[in-house]
């Protein structure tokens, strides 16, 4: 059975690479949908009920933290695993994320696609 992953990131190039990487690396295990800001993320998450959310923390309008708070208020979203994408310089945001039940984090420009894939596999197995 395929698992559904939602990527919420305003960086369209990163989002595309991540999506292709997850689809190709997952050998058909994963179906990936993308949202490009927090508002769209909430909308798609409500509709698609993903098994995992990859969430960018630095986004215009609705930030990652704001998205998480909204997500955790919903019945369908309060237990959805979330992996947070950050940059090294944003690590202080992590503690805030941890309080909101974040399962893991990736450092966007440093982690290889393989590392990210392993983390996703771990959470979704």
């Amino acid at each position: 059975m395929t698992k559904k992953i939602l990527i919420i990131d305003d960086d369209k190039i990163f989002s595309k690479i991540l999506r292709d990487g997850l689809v190709a690396g997952g050998n058909g295990k994963y179906e990936v949908v993308s949202a490009f800001d927090g508002d769209e993320g909430i909308e798609i998450a409500a509709r698609e009920k993903p098994d995992l959310i990859m969430l960018d923390m630095v986004m215009p309008k609705v930030t990652g933290i704001e998205f998480l708070k909204k997500l955790r208020k919903e019945d369908w979203g309060k237990d959805t695993p979330v992996i947070v994408e950050t940059q090294l310089s944003d690590l202080e945001k992590m503690s805030e994320g941890m309080e909101l039940g974040v399962r893991g984090y990736i450092i966007k420009s440093d982690y290889s696609l393989d590392t990210i894939l392993r983390q996703v596999d771990d959470i979704l197995k």
């Binding site: 990163f14 292709d20 940059q87 310089s89 420009s109 440093d110």
Partner: peptide, 27 residues
């Protein structure tokens, strides 16, 4: 400084990952 680093690192990180994809992925 931190925004500048962010702005420089994002495209650079993407370039690296594109390279990764080109090397390993069949897509």
């Amino acid at each position: 400084t931190s925004m500048m680093v962010h702005e420089l690192r994002s495209p650079l990180g993407n370039i690296k990952k594109i390279g990764e994809m080109m090397r390993s992925s069949k897509i």
